[in-house]
Design a protein around this nucleic acid. Structure first.
Length: 274
DNA sequence: AAAATCATCAACCGCGATCGC
DNA sequence: TGCGATCGCGGTTGATGATTT
């Protein structure tokens, strides 16, 4: 038996909604709520499928919808979050009250994609002409050395295309308390502090390029949070994100790590073993 | 002024995830 | 526990208005 169609194909209306239909849907939901989208149109007397009703309500009729152009701050949020988590529109929408995933998706495709592309091109051009800084590990520092961190993941999304091969976050260290955390655990304060995460500018990162494996033709990349700046940023658990090209780990798993940081709150997160 | 092209956005579609019997 | 029903997400389409030629 095949999959049941989402709605009857015969006799149901498609296309743009009329004001009358909108009125019927709104008043029905105000009275009865929308516990069952599939049954709703029949009960409300609409010749639409439940899916269509749900979409119309969520994207247009819901009183929570914010109308009007996106502010610069909203656009920046979309761009930054898209860099981090990709096309997860509903997750991005969750960070922008009153905006829907559909709206954000449209704005991205019509405006922001081009802008982000331009910015990335600009930045990568600058990267080519600037020589990477080599960081020295400070043995007196209370901060664990880089080698103590089997570290994480390329967060510089402008180099995403080069980051398709690896992530490894098998060990995390709580820097703020100077102690090792339980492997694969991120504390709730890490997530909470993301809510007030300040702008990250270039001074935040120091970039290191090394050839850590003689057999490898690919360099290893890492980005280290500047010691003097790290307290204001939310990464209690992680001070270095390392990208080892040619590693066999899965990039998407790293994406999920950041995605979880953004959307989950109030509890410790158990990360999978890699 | 008309035709062609572009930009925008509401709405549809298919699929995977989840629910509930 | 299996399976059908339903939900929700992301990709895509198509209508419409704006702009260019």
């Amino acid at each position: 038996m095949g999959r049941a169609p989402c709605c009857e194909k015969v006799g149901l209306k498609k296309g743009p909604w009329t004001p009358e239909e909108d009125q019927i849907l709104v008043s029905y939901i105000q009275k009865h709520g929308h516990s069952n989208w599939r049954a709703l149109p029949k009960q409300a007397g609409l010749l639409r499928c439940g899916k269509s009703c749900r979409l119309r309500w969520i994207n247009y009729l819901s009183p929570d919808i914010k109308r009007g152009n996106f502010s610069n701050a909203e656009e920046e949020t979309i761009i930054k979050m898209h860099e981090m988590i990709g096309n997860r529109w509903s997750a991005i929408a969750a960070k922008l009250p009153g905006r829907t995933d559909n709206e954000i998706k449209n704005v991205w495709h019509t405006h922001l994609k081009k802008r982000a592309l331009k910015t990335n091109q600009h930045n990568s051009e600058r990267k080519i002409v600037s020589k990477p800084k080599i960081m020295q590990s400070d043995s007196n520092s209370s901060t664990p050395t880089q080698s103590e961190h089997s570290s994480l993941y390329c967060t510089e999304m402008e180099t995403t295309s080069a980051c398709t091969s690896s992530s490894d976050f098998s060990s995390l260290t709580n820097i703020s308390e100077g102690k090792h955390m339980n492997k694969n655990t991120i504390m709730s304060e890490d997530i909470e502090s993301l809510e007030t995460m300040p702008e990250i500018d270039e001074s935040f990162w120091s970039e290191t390029t090394t050839m850590n494996d003689e057999r490898s033709t690919m360099p290893s990349h890492s980005w280290t949070i500047s010691n003097e700046l790290s307290p204001q940023y939310p990464f209690h658990s992680v001070d270095t994100f390392q990208q080892s090209y040619g590693n066999s780990s899965n990039f998407d798993d790293g994406m999920d790590f950041w995605y979880d940081l953004f959307i989950r709150s109030g509890e410790s997160i158990e990360l999978p073993e890699f």
